[in-house]
């Protein structure tokens, strides 16, 4: 379980997130939606332990995520997937995938790790030879899929995904979708951003709509799409067709 308590974020005098209070239950899937630049990415970064909010707390299973974050980080609690599939550019894909596991002297043996990587590559129909490439040599979709694989490798309880289906072709989108359904079924907490109606209807337990740095609504997908609130209606019409 992950909880945001009075979270605010201010940048250059502008309040980007304002008093966010929200609880994300275990085994449920949440989709954060909203117009561009309303603070969706920022919210995911705060949830992922990347950006510390100026006010408020982020509690993971009751513990403050940002308390002593540099010393005792929950290294396999949260799996974060960036929108564009970020990698350490001077490491090969293999080194990138091994980095968190090696860094924390994880119990997984090298052979086991390679095995898991190979299986996942097969599942996502990726060429195993890509492992020795540099990130800059990869295609956009491959980068995105591999960064998804990287999050799966550390097998966290909570996944935070920033627009996981953005800019993917139909086949790749389908592969990711099916994996996300599997993850949801195996009691993982999924928090993702996106403006995809399919995603919301098929996967989301709850949809959260952010407007001007505040949560306008947090409810199930059915109720969200059936909402009579004019602001929500306008939003659905403009963005989710």
């Amino acid at each position: 379980m992950i909880e945001l308590r009075d979270v605010s974020f201010i940048s250059e005098g502008r309040c980007l997130l304002k008093d966010i209070n929200c609880t994300f239950e275990s085994g449920r899937c949440y989709i954060v939606s909203g117009e561009d630049s309303v603070g969706k990415s920022l919210l995911t970064k705060i949830l992922g332990g990347i950006v510390k909010p100026h006010q408020g707390k982020v509690l993971v299973n009751g513990k403050d995520l940002y308390l002593n974050i540099d010393k005792q980080r929950p290294n396999n609690q949260i799996g974060f997937v960036f929108q564009d599939g970020v990698f350490i550019s001077n490491l090969s894909i293999r080194e990138n995938l091994q980095l968190p596991i090696k860094y924390f002297k994880s119990q997984i043996s090298y052979g086991e790790l390679i095995n898991r990587i190979q299986l996942l590559f097969e599942e996502f129909h990726l060429d195993i030879a890509l492992l020795d490439e540099r990130p800059s040599e990869l295609a956009y979709s491959a980068k995105k899929m591999i960064s998804f694989i990287r999050a799966i490798l550390i097998d966290p309880e909570i996944y935070v995904l920033n627009r996981p289906l953005f800019n993917l072709d139909f086949i790749d989108m389908k592969r990711i979708m099916s994996y996300l359904v599997r993850m949801k079924n195996s009691e993982k907490t999924l928090i993702m951003t996106g403006n995809s109606r399919t995603l919301m209807e098929n996967l989301a337990d709850e949809v959260i709509l952010l407007v001007n740095g505040e949560i306008l609504v947090k409810e199930s997908a059915e109720r969200f799409f059936a909402s009579t609130n004019p602001a929500i209606k306008t939003y659905i019409e403009n963005n989710l067709g």
Binding site: G49, F82, V86, L99
Partner: peptide, 11 residues
């Protein structure tokens, strides 16, 4: 965003 990536790992 590579620094963010490291932070996301907990590194």
């Amino acid at each position: 965003n590579e620094i963010d990536l490291l932070k996301s790992y907990g590194i």
